[in-house]
Design a protein around this nucleic acid. Structure first.
Length: 501
RNA sequence: GGCGACGUGGCCAAGUGGCAAGGCAGGGGCCUGCAAAGCCCUUAUCCCCGGUUCGAAUCCGGGCGUCGCCUCCA
């Protein structure tokens, strides 16, 4: 079965056929580095990270290019406000962007070109456009002539004449048409500038993506992504420039993500209702943020709130508990008569079904919500199997349990949701030594031993039905962030509210 | 004003013609010394009104509502 992709251009889902079998060339518009990115920006980057990961998982070799816009009006403005150079501002927020992406678990791009390092190619494209009659020079500025490109408006579904009728753009008498946009801007005093055939200046915003994507990937490349607010005018303009300059198709599949909202309104800098990604990451694990965002389809609007974050955390805990329960069963299996062969094969079937449902959902325009449902369903079936069979497991029941846990981890991994390895769950801290002295008469200095001593003391108390003493141990460990769970195979210790993800 | 998207249980959310996934929250039961984890059960006239069809959440028309783009914006 083919992967289906919703193409903004055709407004339908299409079979995904890359230009070269087995390889995918994709480009996602990166940030303008004048500030920290907010959670809305992050959602788009997260969506395309998952699309990329899924394509890789399906066996494609993916070349993923994302630009950094490091020259722009807003950077210049910010620099003037802070009394720093535009280059310093750009560098500061480029580094901040990379580290925030890394913290969110977004894979680094295959290549990440900077606008300022692509200036000669941009000048070359402007020259090409002038030669072909698609651009004109006015006082050191160069404008693209939208009327010269017949396909203008096709991507965003707009009609030039209607656009002009409703246009709120300030009329610039120097433009031949109000919709014409700047390819190259003459530098004002104090602004960054580069030499060009039209005088000192800097590139327009739309130009850089056209140039960097073509240089890194060639045209047409397979997927061009961004937020839905980039469809017009940014991507419309990119397409017009590139196709006018090359005479070739620019992009095979245009993909756009839905907006993140707060109280049903788009999160944006201008409304002031934004949360910085770094601030949210300081309070919530990346896995929780990813879980929240991936429970909604990438093209739908998504309301962001603390309540939603808490729900996502609970959902993630449910699935991590399922994996933990499986691992505990694997560790303690043995000695019993074993699960029935029916039960065992039913679980094996559940694993197979989950993989299949996951893939079907993701093949259908990257339906992460459906894919997650398949994982949750598998988690529930695993727990049900354990509820039924945990006390009778034999050593040869382990394989299917290991398979199930591996499947859950693998599938979540495709979504970039990493579960912490179980071994690291309950590394005891030095605090337990003192506690073991007080409550279990422990006299050594090894945290692991101390923890075992505490558990033994509690078990002894329980055997004597001395609930007060037993609960004292449990409560004391609870204060340190450990929870004791009694199972048919004995007590186990898990970390609560730890640093999952 | 123009263009577009969306409206599914208390909340969130999949699902584009054939008995309505999943998560969160609530209720009941089971397991447990008590817990925790978990299992089972439990809640839907799919915004409204028409139409097409043997059959519609799904297709068509109208209405109401929400959001986005049309200006920098992920």
């Amino acid at each position: 079965m083919a992967i289906r992709v919703y193409n903004t251009m055709s407004r339908t889902k299409e079979d995904f056929v890359p230009r070269e079998p087995g390889k995918v060339a994709m480009y996602v518009c990166g940030p303008t580095v004048y500030n920290h990115i907010h959670v809305g920006n992050a959602r788009t980057f997260l969506s395309f990270d998952v699309i990329r990961r899924y394509l890789m998982w399906r066996g494609y070799e993916v070349t993923f290019v994302q630009n950094i816009t490091d020259v722009d009006d807003k950077i210049i403005k910010r620099a003037q406000e802070e009394g720093r150079s535009p280059a310093e501002i750009a560098e500061t927020y480029t580094l901040a962007f990379r580290s925030a992406m890394d913290a969110l678990g977004v894979l680094p791009p295959t290549r990440q070109p900077l606008a300022t390092q692509t200036i000669p190619d941009m000048i070359a494209m402007v020259e090409r456009l002038i030669e072909r009659g698609h651009a004109y020079v006015v006082d050191g500025d160069v404008y693209f002539s939208v009327r010269s490109y017949p396909g203008y408006g096709e991507l965003s579904g707009r009609d030039i004449d209607e656009l002009e009728a409703g246009a709120r753009v300030e009329v610039d008498e120097r433009k031949q048409d109000p919709l014409d946009f700047a390819l190259w801007k003459a530098a004002k005093p104090g602004e960054p500038h580069w030499p060009s055939p039209w005088g000192e200046g800097r590139p327009g915003w739309h130009l850089e993506c056209s140039v960097m994507s073509e240089r890194e990937l060639g045209v047409p490349f397979d997927i061009h992504g961004g937020g839905s607010d980039l469809v017009f005018p940014h991507h419309e303009n990119e397409r017009a420039q590139s196709e006018a300059a090359t005479g070739k198709q620019f992009v095979r599949y245009w993909m756009h993500g839905g907006m993140l909202q707060i109280d049903s309104e788009k999160m944006s800098k201008s409304l002031g209702n934004f949360l910085l990604l770094k601030d949210v990451l300081a309070k919530h694990p990346a896995a929780v943020i990813r879980m929240l965002m991936l429970q909604t389809h990438y093209r739908s609007p998504l309301d962001f709130s603390d309540a939603r974050l808490d729900e996502a955390a609970a959902a993630l805990e449910r699935i991590t508990n399922a994996v933990r329960n499986l691992q505990w069963a694997v560790e303690t299996a043995g000695g019993g008569p074993g699960a029935s062969s029916d039960a065992r094969s039913a679980l094996a079937d559940a694993v197979r079904e989950a993989r299949q449902r996951f893939e079907e959902a993701m093949d259908d325009d990257f339906n992460t919500a459906g894919a997650l449902a398949a994982v949750f369903e598998l988690g529930r079936k695993c727990n049900a199997f354990l509820a039924e069979n945990a006390s009778v497991l034999a050593a040869d029941d382990r394989a299917v349990l290991v398979d199930a846990a591996a499947a859950i981890r693998e599938l979540l991994g495709v979504l970039g949701i990493e579960l912490q390895p179980a071994e690291r769950e309950a590394e005891p801290s030095a605090d337990v030594i003192g506690m073991a002295r007080d409550l279990a008469g422990y006299s050594g200095s090894d945290p692991d031993e101390a923890l075992r001593a505490l558990l033994a003391a509690r078990e002894a108390a329980r055997a004597e039905r001395n609930w007060e003493a037993a609960d004292a141990v449990r409560d004391a460990l609870g204060v340190l962030g450990y929870a004791i769970e009694d199972t048919p195979q004995g007590p186990r210790v898990v970390r609560r509210g730890g640093d999952w993800g």
